[in-house]
Design a protein around this nucleic acid. Structure first.
Lengths: 222, 222
DNA sequence: ACCTGAACACCGTTCAAGT
DNA sequence: ACCTGAACACCGTTCAAGT
């Protein structure tokens, strides 16, 4: 068992965990998550791939570290309105805004649930707002969960379409399908026709969020 | 330009698109998406990796093909209740049930939005139910979108936690954090304590869905 | 038209050795 | 204790050639 205190022994470290995470963040910001590989990152910090494994267990851990770093650095706590229902809206919208700013986070979010310790303030305030609206603590956790599903889904779906648009700009399979529907079988979609695409491209996150929160509070009360 | 009709020329094909998709489905069902590689798939159909590229453009296209195949094969159309609100619930729940049965679909869903042509019946009926509840077509599309975000998010988050549970069963970072919270800073979460984990593990999809649909209809009316 | 072989440009990670 | 080099066991895809 190594001595935790006392003078440190052995070869002094040349790279630190912080240095690695910082380089990873730069790499992701400049070239995208796809370019974040252990080998690239190693050359970025002026070392070898295997030196990294002395500071992080594997790539997965590195991604979680990166998520924590991002959360601590960019989650700005909003001013809280007095009205508890509005508080829930404002806090959820703040989470969403932070996520929208970095689509790469998707990969990590589906690898580890929600966020780091520094994000718990957001959980706390959503749950608190819901309880003040009359939910029991249990109902509040379930309602929080529903809000998180909605928020995560919006971000994931939106990030995916953005990626697809960036890749190829052929008129999308979907558009072609919608342009030639059978009005007898699918009357509503046919009537919508080419309006479907622009309508689904609109940002209606807040409207949906308000509807969801209203519904959650009403159901818990009734 | 090649002749589409007339007698076919050149070497006869030894593998077909269908055969490839079928083998891919088997591979994914038996070993998981991670094991679906062009090389593995090639040996599975008794051919070489490059033969596949004669039938599908790239791996991405193969995944979309696989999604279509899955949709056509397992999306069972539910009986539609007379009440339009209940219709929306039933159809959304059917989509969710189909998705829950195959977590690998996550990768493809975030690669291409929603589903294949055979899934449009579901879109149609959700939009129709919403319009019959009094929404304008535009509101109905936006409401459909909100339902899709919620449903996709639920599935993605749930699939991610399942994957994590399957990998390592250490008491999860999250549990440890929740066991030692500062009650002054985070009173609600502290009070919940260890109940957080089991509460968020409960399946409350339908409750959240009903709340969302109620809220969407109420907001559109008001 | 359809398939093959060899090659390119990569991955994450392990293992044994060096300082 | 920390780092290196070489190697393992893979990837998706391109290109030139064969039948």
């Amino acid at each position: 068992m190594p001595q935790p205190s006392a003078q440190r022994r052995g070869r002094p470290p040349r790279i630190s965990r912080e240095e690695i995470v910082e380089a990873a963040r730069r790499l992701v910001d400049e070239e995208g998550v796809a370019k974040l590989t252990m080998r690239r990152l190693a050359t970025q910090v002026g070392s070898t791939p295997m030196a990294l494994y002395h500071h992080v267990r594997d790539k997965e851990e590195l991604l979680v570290l990166l998520l924590d770093d991002y959360a601590a650095r960019t989650l700005r706590r909003p001013d809280l309105p007095a009205d508890p229902r509005e508080r829930v809206i404002v806090v959820a919208a703040a989470i969403r805004e932070a996520l929208a700013g970095c689509p790469w986070i998707v990969e990590v979010l589906t690898a580890d649930d929600l966020m780091s310790e520094s994000a718990l303030w957001f959980n706390e305030n959503i749950v608190d707002g819901l309880i003040e609206c009359g939910l029991t603590p249990e109902q509040a956790v379930h309602a929080y969960r529903a809000i998180w599903y909605y928020t995560a889904g919006e971000m994931l779906v939106r990030a995916a379409s953005a990626r697809r648009r960036a890749r190829d700009d052929r008129p999308t399979y979907r558009d072609r399908v919608f342009a030639a529907l059978d009005p007898a079988a699918l009357p509503r979609l046919s009537a919508l026709g080419t309006r479907w695409a622009p309508l689904t491209a609109e940002d209606t996150y807040l409207d949906g969020l308000r509807a969801l929160v209203d519904g959650l509070i009403a159901r818990a009360a009734g």
